[in-house]
């Protein structure tokens, strides 16, 4: 564990909690892409199946359970509890345009053609593009609530910190995972446009 990975995980946790609290407190998911949240729930489900097969640390297990729990709770709030506030017309990105190519790529480019490894690779590739429906929705509505921009900021920051974590781990531990690194770069690059607006505007954002 290193400082980049720890702050990255905390940033990710902050993003997930911010979103969940925003929806719960305002009792509204206006401006939130339910499709991105479904994709994140799918990312965590396919990546954390190893909860059933291996124990790495209390921290690792605890965080995985929290991530999965919050992801499904968020999807539940959007599609069930506060369904009336879900803006389906603007959340029109076709998820199959992401899931199908990512699924195919995971079968072609992976470290090992085994069930868990393919699912892990699928989750890594999917996570790198899972935010697209949300960014697409903001570009369609033309604005985003301030709290939503904080959610996106911490979500984008987490994988950027992971890039530094991988530099650290390569230098100090010789750890190197090309699949995670390339996908992490793609994921972070997708936020660049948003980061620029977030830093320059500070307030509500129009992509």
């Amino acid at each position: 564990m290193n400082i980049f990975r720890l702050t990255g995980d905390l940033s990710h946790l902050a993003a997930i909690i911010i979103l969940l609290l925003k929806i719960w407190k305002t009792r509204s998911c206006a401006g939130i892409s339910g499709k991105s949240q479904i994709l994140f729930a799918l990312v965590f489900t396919t990546r954390y199946l190893d909860l059933l097969t291996s124990f790495i640390s209390l921290y690792n297990t605890t965080m995985k359970v929290i991530y999965i729990g919050c992801a499904y709770a968020t999807v539940y709030l959007i599609y069930m509890k506060f369904k009336a506030t879900y803006d389906g017309n603007h959340d029109s990105f076709r998820m199959e345009f992401l899931v199908v190519p990512v699924g195919g790529l995971a079968c072609l480019v992976n470290h090992d053609f085994s069930f868990l490894e393919i699912l892990w690779t699928f989750s890594i590739y999917l996570e790198s593009v899972a935010i697209l429906p949300q960014l697409f929705m903001i570009s369609k509505t033309g604005e985003a609530e301030t709290i939503t921009t904080h959610y996106l900021f911490f979500l984008g920051l987490y994988r950027a910190l992971y890039l530094f974590n991988w530099i650290w781990r390569f230098y100090f531990e010789g750890f190197f995972d090309m699949i995670a690194i390339v996908a992490g770069m793609v994921q972070t690059i997708l936020y660049c446009d948003f980061f620029y607006l977030y830093v320059t505007k500070g307030q509500g954002i129009s992509l």
């Binding site: 990975r5 995980d9 990710h12 190893d50 790495i56 640390s57 690792n60 965080m63 995985k64 991530y67 470290h111 090992d112 490894e117 892990w120 992971y162 974590n165 750890f175 190197f176 995972d177 995670a180």
Partner: peptide, 10 residues
């Protein structure tokens, strides 16, 4: 046979 990097990250 490619060595699979460990999966100790979230």
């Amino acid at each position: 046979e490619e060595e699979v990097p460990e999966k100790d990250e979230l």
